[in-house]
């Protein structure tokens, strides 16, 4: 079994677009984007792959600041950005397709930003 070596570089949100553009110029494929809540901050990860070489960049944000959208560089990024918007409430500036919170319609607004669980009590009447 071979385990992949993975490198995560933490960058400033300011340098995000430039860095992503670099990856695109190298011919990388956007593997995924996702967000993790750590304490009060949010880590946003951007993963790229070329010839099975995986690299990841991370920005750290407070969840309120608007993040520039990378959908101008990778067209397909809109799906991840809308997902993060719906689940974590992170706002992206300049998305090519903006579902305005309707991609994943959830019972609770931004459920992943403040996770809660249903109790064991019987469900309320519908």
């Amino acid at each position: 079994m071979t385990q992949e070596d993975q490198q995560t570089t933490i960058i400033e949100p300011l340098h995000l677009l430039g860095k992503v553009e670099e990856f695109r110029k190298k011919g990388c494929r956007l593997v995924q984007m996702h967000c993790t809540k750590v304490g009060d901050t949010f880590e946003i990860n951007y993963s790229f792959d070329i010839n099975y070489e995986f690299s990841n960049i991370r920005i750290i944000t407070d969840g309120k600041t608007e993040i520039p959208s990378i959908s101008g560089i990778y067209w397909g990024a809109f799906i991840y950005e809308n997902e993060m918007h719906d689940l974590f409430g992170i706002r992206f500036a300049g998305m090519n397709i903006d579902f305005s919170g309707n991609l994943i319609r959830t019972a609770k607004k931004n459920p992943f930003a403040d996770p809660s669980f249903r109790g064991e009590k019987p469900c309320p009447d519908a």
Binding site: T106, A107, K108, P111, P115, S116, F117, R118, E120, P122, C123, D125, A126
Partner: peptide, 14 residues
């Protein structure tokens, strides 16, 4: 999945 925030429960609650 009964504890998930988005799940209401079994079919019989509707």
């Amino acid at each position: 999945f009964r504890e998930c925030y988005n799940v209401v429960g079994g079919i019989d609650c509707i």
